[in-house]
Design a protein around this nucleic acid. Sequence first.
RNA 1: GCUCGAGUGGUGGAAUUGGUAGACACGUUGGACUUAAAAUCCAAUGGACAUUAGUCCGUGCGGGUUCAAGUCCCGCCUCGAGUACCA
Length: 1127
Amino acid sequence: MNYDFKKIEAKWQKYWAENQTFKAENNSDKEKFYVLDMFPYPSGAGLHVGHPLGYIASDIYARYKRHQGFNVLHPMGYDSFGLPAEQYAIQTGLHPAVTTSINIDGCLDAAGNILPKYLNVDDSIKNEALIDKTIATSKKDENYQENIIKGYRKQLDKIGFSFDWSREVRTSNPDYYKWTQWIFIQLFNSWYNKDSDKAEDIATLIALFEKDGNATVNAVSDEDIPVFTADEWNTFDPKKQQELLLQYRLTYLAETEVNWCPALGTVLANDEIINGVSERGGHPVVRKKMTQWSMRISAYAQRLLDDLNTIDWPQPLKDSQTNWIGRSQGASVTFKVLPLTPSEGGGTDSSSPRYYTGNSEIYGILLERAKEMRKNPTAAEAKLWDELRNRNLNDKFRRQHPISNYIVDFVCIEKNLIIEVDGEIHQYQLEKDDERELLLEQKKGFTVLRFSNDDVLNNIEAVIAKIEKKLSSLSSGEGWGEVDLDRGIEVFTTRPDTIFGVSFMVLAPEHELVATITTPEQKAEVEAYIQATAKRSERERMADVKTISGAFTGAYAEHPFSKEPIPVWIGDYVLAGYGTGAVMSVPCGDQRDYDFAKHFNIPIPNIFEGVDISEEAHADKDKTVIANSDFLNGLPYKKAMKLAIYELEKLGQGKGKINYRLRDAVFSRQRYWGEPFPVYYVDGMPQMIATEHLPIALPVVEKYLPTETGEPPLGNATVWAWNTVTNKVVDNSEIDNATVWPLELNTMPGWAGSSFYFNRYMDPTNTEAIFSEDAMNYWQDVDLYIGGSEHATGHLLYARFWQKFLFDKGVVPKKEFAKKLINQGMITGTSAFVYREEESGQIISKGLIDGKIVSPIHADVSFVNASDELDIEAFKNWREEYKDAAFVLEDGKYIVGREVEKMSKSKYNVVSPDSICEDYGADSLRLYEMFLGPLEQSKPWNTAGITGTHGFLKKLWRLYLEDNGAKFTDAAPTKDNLKTLHKTIKKVAEDIENFSFNTSVSTFMICVNELSAQKCTSKEILESLAILVSPYAPHIAEELWEQLGNTTSIATAPFPKFDASHLVESSKEYPISFNGKMRFKLELPLDLSKEEIEATVMAHEKTIEQLQGREPKKVIVVPGKIINIVG
RNA sequence: GCUCGAGUGGUGGAAUUGGUAGACACGUUGGACUUAAAAUCCAAUGGACAUUAGUCCGUGCGGGUUCAAGUCCCGCCUCGAGUACCA
């Protein structure tokens, strides 16, 4: 009997499928074990040998655990929403669901023939069934199968994985994304309570608002939410309440600056951008303000960081998550700033800057008084304030706001409009009103509207109408954004201890204060600078770190302690997106600040004791003592830091703060092929569809491109409105803004569906719940997760975030979804090159190049054999241009050059697992992929080496069977047999548990080599060996197991028990070293004492010969290990 | 720049707590079988000198610790991955 791997593998694959051998039970007395692979995006190109690497490793582990008696969950599915299917839809109009299903299920029937539905009448094959769609292919072509999509599932099945296919999920199936939508709704209905440090239902927040307003609420929320009382909350109209709640929800709609990729027509998350261009396609990305759904992942920043310590994941992966979260501890400090007023024309005498109000002393007094006045408004003021806020005017008003030397009642800063309400309380001011109005209107360019208390109280409609009319007639001040001047400039610093070293401040060019504080003299320069930086793309800005640029705003801030004026600059080395977009610059302690100061001739005060800063900044903090810093003098870093924060807090100008780099994740994509949001809009406010009406299925569209008006592809759908009475998706024409409302047009990003699939596998067909409690309580979490390291900051961070959220909500029992994670390395390709001499056009064998000028040309690796010889005929037939090429051979052969490159179609070095299975079998492939090297390392593929593992399998086979049949007997195993076997059991078990799969393949080879040499025929030994091999080479193991007389699958046969007694040795061949160098070996009994060993060795003739009469200084004897003679 | 990994024969790699460097394979060379090829089997295979023992050199480079270093320590070099003005 020969080792007919084709027959054997087909037989057992069929057996496993028919008997559902690997179906995991949700009710079992056995202990659970959950082995998971990162599920793939099913692309049309199919698998190459690099893809199954991790699947093979996890499959070995899963099978090993079954042998150990565990109930193993080992599922597989598809992350089937994604761009390629959508792009194909844009080109051809074919629905992405069709493409997706072709890519998974393939176009061949069970017998391997193309399914009729992919054939045209003339036997040409439909484009969607082709791998390379640019090559027209017909059924009449001899090798037409090579260009047909086989389907992921078929390819996976051929490798013999022990997946439980009954649990397959596809993220693009409505019965799956129903639960993606469900989780979204849970997030929407939750807020993050910092007091309980977890997500809570939004109802608990509403209860707090109703009772106490929002002043005492300790939540992760948007910044700048106005403070309101319970009374105010209760009188807000529902829309206002919804707006406010949205600022607290864990997923929220907000206008944010997003990464917009014009070429892809969508926004991208930070992790989808590599080096300033899109990860997919490498298109440029620009910043753009858009209203988008966001996920408040920042609420979980600290927990995501802390819990990294609880999981066994690779350190580099943890490091990059730590990096990405980017925690830094320091302080937020507010610098008061008062821009020079236009009338007072700052900058004419820049050596003596003058502050905003003309006298900074009274600013503080004004502020105090303003606050007091806000607390005690007159009836008219209160009424007008309510109206101004609730009318939904396009412009924002502030009340009791300091402007110049005065406090005005209401001001709209964007439009420079002041509204004054005259009442009795203000009688004392009346005489000054004229003077005041003159100043405000004529010198500062404000418009003042004046109403009486009476007007407001009795004729509010007329008052509002007047205000609206005035507002519409006024143009906005150029770029005078919303600014809260009371706040000053807030910065974040990790070094509050160096606050006395501040000699300037720098704002990001995009900072909202820039326009407000810039003096007229500096306006032109600042605007020019802003324009110049805006023009530079993100990429240029990142690439060019060297060039120092910036502009002075003309404004000065006040040092919180010294009260010295500090010039305020803008510069693009300060990023708008990090911290507050502003820094206090300490040039003596920060190299960037130092460079900036040097470049613009700004003083660099030294605040470090005994440190020279003439050449560069001094960033060290551990051994440095602070000097020239008033109350911080003489203190080391940590103490100075604490004291500085303490003093800042006393001033009310700062507090200790922890800052995270992690930003909230944008969750909207302007794509078709993604999960629709279960959201409709009532008066522009998002409403969740009740969970019992899920899923909201993707609508039919005619075109997959954005609409002409720039709306996302779902804007093309004609049936895409929500009827709140029937709870159905209905035709857009029915939208009446009463009971039928428009649905959300964005879809969810790729990571939505992959952020909980590992939990869904536990109960994948449940239609009542995302999974049953029983299933969740049994399976708990993933014990082993294997996948690529490219998901370090994307999928793996988002999935952890959702898991923590679901944990807070009591949906899952574990804070982390995967205990152990392994990143498999990449398999690179070994490209083959032929060399064409430029001059003669001859193609020269590698060994004969020798100084000739040649250009290397990629040759398809399938034309090259194990000895690097080229199949010249095949190469000639490959391309028309090589048909008549002349070859210069060495020894009658053409030898190609080899180089390791990424495996890719364009390099003609792709090897598909299908062809390997065809030629050598799945077991050979599995063994070889493992044999290549450590799982986590990247390593080159070279098909030639597979003969090694294939040869091993043949040798294994021959140990059991020969031409006439069985070789095994009931003979008792010999001592040597047992020793070999138990050595192997020990090593293989250890290897699997250490994920060192490459070494166990060697161990098997050694074992089979030894047993062959021992002519072992003992059935007892061979049965155990079959089980040992079965996780790695399951098909041959099953076949041998059956040949040995077993009638059930080997899959759950108990793993052989290691018995150390078989390895006990009575003697050891000691290496005898002289001065650390091994010279000869000597067999000695292990029960000798140190002294006996030394005496025997010293008396040995070879020792005497080595020593040549010298007296050894020392003899080291390590019993059981080594003997070293020194001297 | 910073963070993390990794450098061992012609190639992939092994050496689990410092203790025989190069296991196991590929490739190469020679041999057996064969008309021949394939397949299979046997032998050799880190380098240099000697080829009968034998000697010297060898784990990216330079130091160090130790009876003993691929393994530990210090300083460099190269390659790969991640990150990128993060205040």
